[in-house]
Write a protein that binds this DNA or RNA. Structure first.
Lengths: 132, 132
DNA sequence: CTTTGTGCAAATTCTTTGCACCAAA
DNA sequence: TTTGGTGCAAAGAATTTGCACAAAG
């Protein structure tokens, strides 16, 4: 395990879950999916681990809605889309690299960028259109 | 008051506050700043009004950190920057329009986009550098 | 030993809800 | 008189904190 993070069974389990499930899970989802296999796991520990990973920039926190945080082990530059109806979050690839986008920013030290789109996904979009 | 929102004293006060304070205030900040002048105001009402405004797309909710929502009466296309140290949020103008940025997105109906940058503002950046 | 990962329960924070009251059309 | 804006208190949900124990080097 890189990023200056000491491995432990729980940490490895959380990282493996995130790498194997690029579905932007919430803390709760991660906990509930790992708990059956790791009955000693507590939700506090999941919170601790996710916070540590994020601080070390090993994963990215996605706060696309105000509700709860989601996590992504894909830290490459990409955007996210959330459906207003079903709430699902999916990746969107960008055509341009981000640094070109922002006007000269005084003396800001920018080290992170998140792009969030909202609307209706293909499934919910159908219903959305048919309801009008 | 446009956007299909019926005006009321409280609604006008919240909208005027937002238009006069483009500092991306939180619900709490708005409430605390209006309360002295409007002692009958309750925080529930501020929540109600902000939710209504956002639904009507009269203002934009900014969820740049997971903590709490911030609001912006400037609904033109622009990005936001938050300082990791002091937490302040400021606007950033974009060079490109957003639709060019995203790869062809299947059948997504995209109606909203938020771009968030993080790092250190000019003030905190100084301290950040001098501390290393 | 000493550090640090973990877990429980309680506390905190932000936001929503239920319901009653009040004001305006 | 009916609709809809408001306010209080309580509930709810997500996350953090304090502290004690356990595990690892």
């Amino acid at each position: 395990m890189q990023f200056g993070i000491k491995p432990s069974l729980h940490r490895l389990a959380v990282m493996e879950y995130l790498m194997g499930n690029l579905t932007h899970p919430t803390t709760d989802t991660i906990y509930n999916n790992l708990f059956p296999a790791i009955p000693t796991l507590s939700k506090t520990t999941v919170y601790n681990i996710l916070k540590l990973f994020e601080e070390k920039r090993a994963i990215a926190a996605i706060v696309i809605d105000g509700k709860n945080a989601r996590y992504d082990s894909d830290i490459s530059q990409h955007a996210h889309f959330q459906c207003r109806k079903c709430g699902s979050v999916r990746d969107l690839r960008l055509k341009e690299t981000l640094p070109v986008m922002v006007e000269n920013s005084d003396n800001l030290v920018i080290d992170d960028c998140h792009i969030y789109f909202r609307g209706y996904c293909s499934e919910c979009g159908k219903n959305y259109i048919s309801m009008n």
